[in-house]
Simulated scan of single mutants.
Amino acid sequence: MDPSVAHAISQETGQPQPFSLELLQSVTYLHVSYARTLEDLSACRNLEILQIIGCDPVDVGQLGNLPELATIVVQLSNLESLVGIENFPSLSRLTAGMNQIRDLTPLLSCSELRRLDIQGNPLSEFSYRTIVSQLQEKGIRVSVSDEADWKMTIELQRHGFPYCFYKAHDGTRLCRPGLALTDLPDLSHPIVPREELANLLDQSPEEVPKLFDRKDLMPTTFGP
């Protein structure tokens, strides 16, 4: 079992490893940060709320069938594919901001989904313009990046930077989802105006990674 997953279970249950199957099946809420694998969560059959922050990789297919799972929050992680999301028949809310999601098609099979947040993802043109509309027509409340921010994330990826560009309360920020480039993907998100970033990508793309080292660009308050 991944140490971060074990820590989350211990925090929730107050019990150390090894965990009995009965204990795992009693867990209804978990908050997991910085895990390298989530496959052992499939034993938590009665999970209702799952928060995943800064994990890498994240494969929803590893979670198996979780019939009670109603809320998933997976942010700043290396979630690339939503294949397997249909294994959560009770899913009503998915918050998946700042990942590496391109294809939203699997969400069309989520009959109970009512709220979706997919801001800061490098969505494909088809997902951004067509699937989002189809989800909204199904009565789902969708939060998605505005077109300029979405295109900036796409442009970053085109230049070879696996970053996400997103709007926060104090401006637009850059982040590095997953654990490939940082041990703490939920920290150090420089505030960078879109025009400044566009100029860097056009004239000096090698300077873009250095933005994460500039203390003068770091937020002084918490939260997105």
Rank of each mutant, 00 (worst) to 15 (best):
E48L: 04
I49T: 14
L50W: 03
Q51S: 11
I53V: 14
G54T: 11
C55W: 01
C55L: 02
D56C: 10
P57C: 06
D59S: 15
V60N: 07
V60P: 12
Q62R: 08
Q62H: 15
G64R: 05
L66N: 11
P67L: 03
T71V: 15
I72W: 02
L76A: 08
S77I: 10
L79E: 02
L79A: 04
E80S: 10
V83A: 12
N87Q: 15
F88V: 11
P89V: 00
L91T: 10
L91A: 13
S92C: 12
R93S: 13
R93H: 12
T95Q: 09
G97W: 15
M98S: 11
M98D: 06
M98I: 11
I101Y: 10
R102F: 05
T105H: 14
P106R: 13
L107T: 12
L107Q: 12
S109Y: 04
S111G: 01
E112C: 13
R114F: 00
R115S: 09
R115L: 03
R115W: 10
D117L: 06
Q119R: 15
G120R: 08
G120A: 14
S124E: 02
F126G: 03
F126A: 10
R129D: 01
R129C: 01
T130F: 01
T130H: 05
I131K: 07
V132W: 01
G139I: 05
G139R: 07
I140S: 07
V142Y: 01
S145F: 04
S145M: 03
D146C: 05
E147D: 09
A148M: 05
K151R: 15
M152F: 05
T153Y: 06
I154C: 14
E155L: 15
L156A: 12
L156Y: 09
Q157I: 03
Q157T: 03
Q157D: 13
H159E: 10
